[in-house]
Design a protein around this nucleic acid. Sequence first.
DNA 1: CTGAAAGCGCTAACAT
DNA 2: ATGTTAGCGCTTTCAG
Lengths: 359, 359
Amino acid sequence: MPRSTASRPTLAKVADHAGVSVSTASLAFSGAGPISPETRERVLAAARELGYTGPNPLGRQLRSGRSGIVGVVIGDNPGRAFRDPVSVQVLDGLMQVLGERGLGVLLVPGLRREGAPRDPLIASTAMDVAVLVWGALTDDPNVATLTGRGVPVVIGEGHRLDGAPLVRIDDRTGAAEAIRHLRDLGHTRIAEITLPLGRGERSGPVDDARRALADLTPARHRMAGVRDVLEPVVSWETPASLVEHGHAAATELLGQWVPNAQRPTAVFAHSDLLAAGAVIAARDLGLRVPEDVSIAGFDGLDLPWLSPDVLTSVSQPLREKGEALGHAVLGVLDGAEPAVQTLPVHLVRGTTTGPAPAA
Amino acid sequence: MPRSTASRPTLAKVADHAGVSVSTASLAFSGAGPISPETRERVLAAARELGYTGPNPLGRQLRSGRSGIVGVVIGDNPGRAFRDPVSVQVLDGLMQVLGERGLGVLLVPGLRREGAPRDPLIASTAMDVAVLVWGALTDDPNVATLTGRGVPVVIGEGHRLDGAPLVRIDDRTGAAEAIRHLRDLGHTRIAEITLPLGRGERSGPVDDARRALADLTPARHRMAGVRDVLEPVVSWETPASLVEHGHAAATELLGQWVPNAQRPTAVFAHSDLLAAGAVIAARDLGLRVPEDVSIAGFDGLDLPWLSPDVLTSVSQPLREKGEALGHAVLGVLDGAEPAVQTLPVHLVRGTTTGPAPAA
DNA sequence: CTGAAAGCGCTAACAT
DNA sequence: ATGTTAGCGCTTTCAG
């Protein structure tokens, strides 16, 4: 067995040992051409003897011009990106599809902070395609760097980009459906807890000016959907889709209300994690869900720890979204025309929404 | 702006355009040699004109023999691996350290199922080092494949492997500490909810024979730590560290007990997610925590959704573990001697453990 | 079916 | 400080 310090055998050595040419030896491994079974076996035997485990990927990559690597650009901070089950399920579907084609997924942290130097990985790692999954902004510098390098981009969230496939969900319709559901239950004072509208961790009420500036598409489109049905009595921005931020926001929205009669009777949160935080906040405030306050979310996550409550939520097909992104990547590699694909969402009623309390 | 279909300019073209040799042009980008500021600027200007954004990583990699990629082998299933906050935090620390050295992290799914063909990525993707973070078994076929290829391995969980650095936590001491805490509170009937002992999703009671076969180190060592202090009245294996499995296990352990007087007064779970499931199960059974039953976990996660309860838990330094793994990887690349590093853990008391109820 | 030859894009000796 | 040269390991025409 060769020591790790020893140089590994090369295809040339194997060919030599088997008494064939390198090109023939190459064929024995790739199977991409005619070769007699005997020669093939002879080459493989020689390889076995020399401890050659297959063509060096680096040589293959340079020759073929492809790395077999798909960069997945995750937002601000890896820890945050993966703390969110939404991201995780999308990634899962994506890896599945890419894995079947032998493509590896490279995690690339995007901008860490506003104005921070762009990640060197974005600027110089080998990748055949980059997938932007979380929070691509208009004029995102990462996008500029990548396309400048000639790395094609697939957008999994964010604005349409010329020449790049886009996979999105029907945020606006979904949000509208949730609000319509609440309105049909008799609710008129509905509060909204939003996802982040842009970079810079902000929390607090959203006014029309701020709303007009929203650059992150999920929040932007879901806010629009809400207002397709009615104007929320108050809209509260959170810095991230985390339970604790939903809790904090709901505590503001439900707890500080004087006089009590003005308190919202329903809360629509832009994510299930935020909604779950709101449910817990309601419990902590001594409010019954849904008798005193109805709460609906967005994502359709399975949250066993919210037991016995089951969130009413706009369910989005997360794995499918990942898979669709994967197919979009394959399409790019195969030279297909970039397309926009919109995945449907639908409201799933749980136990956290009910009729508005009698005035 | 060149179209994506057009071939990108090469260093040779840039050198030509700037009127210098390729090697000089290379120096202008790498900075790894003497070059006059003027020439350098001339080269960069030429590059700008031609839309050359830097050396092609594929060429560089082949030449230098390094891919700049670290493979992170995740257990069975990506979705599962990232649903667990423990994995995520470790990954976060790892990416941070590697990112600072310009190394990218490639996610590699390990065995999907028992007997499934090994992932082609393991067998043939370019990586300078592989990190095994989740559930490496004795004689793990992935490990064999990787070392056979000459890819050095760093173990983040699992058995010691000759020549490979190992980063572990002090599972056994931590578990013992948790049990000692419970015993000091007067508990004698303590039940245990374990992490998976091996492949194959199993759930049910663990007897001595099964325990002897445990191949996954976290469960193995934590079980040993428990028994350093006392023998649990019952030990229940789960198929994965998920809230729902903790819930199911605790429902068995606490609910089915006839006569009631035999019911365990405390539960130690091998993970916080399992423990959280146990807390919820206790609530669902109408048991007060900690008055009727004390519950302790392992990991030291922040679980805001368990509010108002705060888990008593053996806290492990997850980010630090990831960082230590990162440094171990750098060590391997720098030719350092492989070492074993054991990180300390410590018990953090929350609100879920209290004195044993009076008989 | 097999072999010879060219070259993917780059870096690192070595020579100047 | 710059240029010349020689590959890194492989795949892929193109001949035979």
